[in-house]
Design a protein around this nucleic acid. Structure first.
Lengths: 117, 117
DNA sequence: AGTGTTCATCGACAGCCGTCGATCTCATCA
DNA sequence: TGATGAGATCGACGGCTGTCGATGAACACT
């Protein structure tokens, strides 16, 4: 139901989550904390961390090339890519029959900054 | 059952978790992913994020001064500080009747580096 | 000793999350 | 048009997690 031409990014509200709140500066408002927690939750899973590292190392990865290295079923891999995309960490692009995933540019940098960079 | 003189840090195995694995470099081994996920899970909660930001801003905070700002019961606050301490993010020191919490030095920096810094 | 305070632990409950098999959608190719 | 194949969705199950009230342990002060 995401219904777009080809870009499968953030569902619509989590993309700008990592923009500017700093953990170590001010006491951090409740809304900012919820937004930051959403992104961190997406990364707080061993399978998704390895997924992100694989995508990061390869630059671009097809979904079908993730099941093997992650040792997870196709529905599970699809679930994890969806979670990461909704958190604004991954960007998916459908090319023909395959979906290619790459890192959302600047997202990890924003996250590092939010963590007190 | 932590049973030590006064330092309530990592339970014993999570402290060195954030040391050197880089998300964006190599494909990230399974053990490293589990260790990183453990730290991220500790931070992936709005209440704990606000807790950390409060401690960070104040430098040092007593447990009893957290219930109010966090709007959580005393057992819940105690639970969260324990989770953060076991993840190596907070360090607790008992002084008299109070427990004072401060950030584990270098922990957030290590985390930022693990995230591709 | 007795009392009050600070914090940790326990037990319970509701809700969320990772996982997979089965199924559905849709693009490609014969 | 029909067959094939990639990937998204559904439904279910077990396990983990945030929360709180009640209780317990340790300390300070009288």
């Amino acid at each position: 139901m995401v219904a777009d031409t080809s870009e499968t990014t953030a569902g619509g509200s989590a993309g700008a989550a990592t923009c500017t709140p700093s953990l170590t500066a001010a006491p951090l408002g409740e809304a900012e904390a919820v937004a930051l927690a959403r992104v961190l939750s997406a990364l707080a899973d061993p399978v998704r961390l390895r997924l992100v590292s694989i995508v990061s190392a390869a630059g671009e990865v097809c979904s079908c090339d993730l099941e093997g290295p992650l040792a997870r079923s196709q529905p599970t891999v699809s679930h994890h890519t969806k979670v990461l995309a909704e958190a604004g960490i991954l960007v998916g692009e459908k090319r023909g029959r395959w979906t290619w995933w790459r890192l959302s540019p600047g997202c990890l940098a924003d996250l590092r900054q939010a963590l007190g960079g």
